[in-house]
Amino acid sequence: MSPSPVPPVAPVQSFKLRRGRMGVVRQEALAEHLGRYEVRADTDLDPVALFGNDHPVVLEIGSGMGDATLAMALAAPEVNVVAAEVHTPGIGALLQGVVEHGVTNVRLLEADGRTFLTERVAPGSLAGVRVYFPDPWPKARHHKRRLVGPDFVALVADRLAPGGLLHCATDWEPYAEQMVEVVAANPAFTLDPDRSRPAWRPLTRFERRGLALGHVVNDVLARRTATPRP
């Protein structure tokens, strides 16, 4: 695969590695079932080989504990989802749900989704990219670590098919403003002015905690245009 040229994504880690415990059931799920549902980080994304069909594919970067991922996959079985998460407990939790519900349209990538998007996804091959509640890196000196910046948006634009959707959500309002600014500045996207949560995106566990603390949640949605805006 030879991805088309896009501005390089800065090699800065945009997430914090956190330790977490896993129960026996999730450990057993990983041991017994991960091989069936795993996306290899060192292999180019081949949707037909991976899912056995040619349905549209969405990449979710940072699926967390996977509760929203699982709910959306169950609600839209005609959409294939690659869920990327760096924390093993989250992979275990989602895998447990996938197995218990007999979900066939989810595959799991235990790796940095941005790196996978850069190196292993062909241009114009995705129907969507989801980034829900990425680390906001609130301190000014850490803003360079935020995932959703100009280079990332340009990368997503290259990997999305025309009509594909970039969907970000955050409960950190300054980050939401940055997301809106960088997406609006990219002529490949048409930005939806409505920042409310669409009915088809379920609440996440992290989101519920933020709302309980009085945080305001913004959903930033942008559609990949067939012809870039002038």
Rank of each mutant, 00 (worst) to 15 (best):
M1Y: 15
P3L: 13
S4W: 12
S4P: 14
V6D: 15
P7T: 08
V9Y: 05
Q13W: 04
G20M: 15
M22T: 03
V24G: 11
Q27V: 08
L30W: 06
L34N: 07
Y37A: 04
V39L: 06
R40H: 13
R40K: 13
T43C: 14
T43D: 13
P47I: 03
V48A: 14
A49M: 04
L50M: 07
N53C: 11
D54R: 09
V57G: 07
V57Y: 06
V58R: 02
E60A: 03
E60Q: 04
S63V: 01
S63F: 08
M65F: 15
G66E: 09
A68M: 04
A71C: 05
A73I: 05
L74S: 14
L74C: 09
A75C: 08
P77D: 05
P77I: 03
V79A: 07
V79C: 11
N80S: 07
A84W: 04
T88R: 15
T88S: 10
P89H: 11
P89G: 13
I91H: 14
G92V: 12
A93G: 05
L94T: 01
L94G: 03
L94P: 03
Q96F: 10
G97H: 13
V99D: 11
G102V: 09
G102P: 09
V103K: 03
T104E: 08
N105G: 08
E110I: 08
E110T: 02
E110D: 13
E110L: 11
A111N: 09
D112C: 07
G113K: 04
R114N: 09
T118M: 14
R120V: 06
A122T: 14
P123W: 11
G124W: 12
G124F: 14
G124P: 11
S125E: 15
L126S: 06
L126D: 02
G128R: 02
G128F: 05
V129K: 02
V131N: 01
V131G: 01
Y132M: 04
Y132A: 00
P136S: 02
A140N: 10
H142K: 04
H143N: 03
L147S: 00
V148H: 00
G149E: 01
G149Q: 04
D151Q: 13
F152V: 00
F152G: 00
A154M: 02
L155V: 03
D158I: 06
L160K: 01
P162I: 12
P162T: 10
P162M: 15
G163F: 10
H167V: 01
H167R: 01
D171H: 02
E173W: 02
E173G: 00
P174G: 01
A176E: 00
E177P: 00
E177A: 12
V180L: 15
V183Q: 05
A188G: 10
F189G: 14
P193W: 07
P193D: 08
R201A: 06
P202Y: 02
T204N: 07
R205I: 04
E207R: 05
R208K: 14
R208Q: 14
H215C: 04
V216A: 07
V216S: 11
N218H: 11
D219L: 06
P230L: 15
P230E: 12
